[in-house]
């Protein structure tokens, strides 16, 4: 929205390299994320040659799928000016309950049905979030901290605490379907799992919703300024319900992929990783106060966080440093994106 303005105001002056870089960054904050990714890859690649392999790329793609699905959902909520901390609890509750149901009652269930169940379970919990956030008129962060404990407490006290180790054959097989696979020179088996396609599809869908539909316009309008959007006649209730339900559904699907990929359902998994996801979305250029951000930026943020968490160790950086680096990047990115607006 602001890009058109800044172009016409600043245009016509001297086009030094610096100002051009600055302008590009103004319009596309995710370029900074891309720069960090490239810098990190060059660094790791120069220290450790093993990084520059197709199998590393496959591993990154595999690790990005679950966090990517989470991030898309969080991004949609962030774009509307809210924040969600309960999506990991939603994913855990949905994946564990559905897995348990499938194992005990319908082991022959087709994968499509399993995913539909996980998504609708997640959507239902998301709907509760949406209704509460809208109805209580409280900051969504505080409401979703509450629902996080509610959902997780419900899962662990009433659904179960035991790992489900033997999954039905179809779920087991689904995690192993390969898009590409080959045996590398060292003899290790590398494969790109097919569930990566779900992330691709979800990204396209999210992009389409945000950029090509009326509800997408409403999401960004509400994120920009709630009172103004309300006076313009946007239906705030519908948007709140939509974003939280959508995020819940994505979280349910992500949880199910997590189960199929790890070949076990552990109810203690996932919760605790939400801060990484929010970090990814913020690093992708979405402002935490809402109204901005893009789907490609979010995906770049995901890649950056996954890189930090999985690859830095290849360059000899101890894994204990991961949090420090992600935390520092959040503050750095936040400060940088702010400075560009202040000029």
């Amino acid at each position: 929205m602001s890009c058109a303005n800044s172009l016409s105001v600043d245009g016509g002056g001297e086009f030094t390299f610096r100002s051009r870089v600055k302008k590009r960054l103004d319009n596309r904050p995710e370029l900074f994320t891309l720069f960090l990714i490239v810098a990190l890859s060059v660094f790791v690649g120069s220290v450790n040659r093993d990084f520059l392999q197709v199998s590393t790329f496959f591993d990154l793609a595999r690790s990005s799928t679950v966090i990517g699905l989470f991030a898309l959902g969080v991004f949609v909520i962030l774009a509307a000016g809210g924040i969600d901390l309960s999506f990991t609890a939603i994913a855990a509750l949905s994946m564990y309950s559905v897995t348990k149901l499938v194992v005990s009652y319908f082991p022959e269930a087709p994968m499509l049905l399993v995913f539909l169940a996980a998504a609708s379970g997640g959507a239902l919990l998301g709907l509760i979030n949406g209704l509460l956030v809208h109805g209580l008129k409280a900051p969504s962060m505080i409401v979703t901290i509450g629902t996080q404990y509610l959902f997780r407490g419900f899962l662990l006290s009433f659904v179960g605490t035991v790992w489900v180790l033997s999954l039905p054959d179809k779920m087991e097989a689904f995690g192993k379907i390969a898009l590409f696979s080959f045996v590398s020179k060292q003899g290790t088996h590398a494969m790109l799992p097919a569930f990566v396609l779900i992330l691709v599809f979800a990204s396209l869908l999210t992009w389409w919703i945000l950029n090509r539909t009326l509800i997408g316009k409403a999401i960004f309008a509400i994120g920009g300024s709630l009172p103004i959007a309300e006076r313009l006649g946007y239906n705030v209730r519908a948007v709140h319900i939509f974003i939280f339900t959508y995020t819940g559904a994505l979280a349910g699907i992500a949880g199910m992929i997590h189960v199929c990929s790890n070949r076990l359902a552990n109810p203690f998994d996932l919760v605790g990783s939400e801060i990484d996801v929010i970090a990814a979305v913020v690093l992708g250029g979405a402002r935490i106060t809402g109204g901005t951000g893009t789907v490609p930026g979010t995906l770049l943020g995901v890649v950056l966080v996954v890189l930090i968490n999985n690859v830095l160790i290849m360059a000899g950086v101890p894994s204990t440093w991961q949090r420090v680096i992600v935390g520092a990047f959040i503050l750095l990115a936040g400060a940088l994106f702010l400075l560009r607006r202040k000029r």
């Binding site: 949090r323 420090v324 935390g327 503050l331 936040g334």
Partner: peptide
């Protein structure tokens, strides 16, 4: 960070939460 850089308190304390935890992990191994 909040007063001079103008970071949103949520974002700032989320970042420092990770930073503080991270430094504690690094210090204590």
């Amino acid at each position: 960070l909040i007063a001079h850089l103008g970071l949103t308190p949520i974002l700032c304390t989320l970042g420092t939460q990770m930073l503080f935890t991270g430094v504690a992990v690094v210090l204590s191994g």
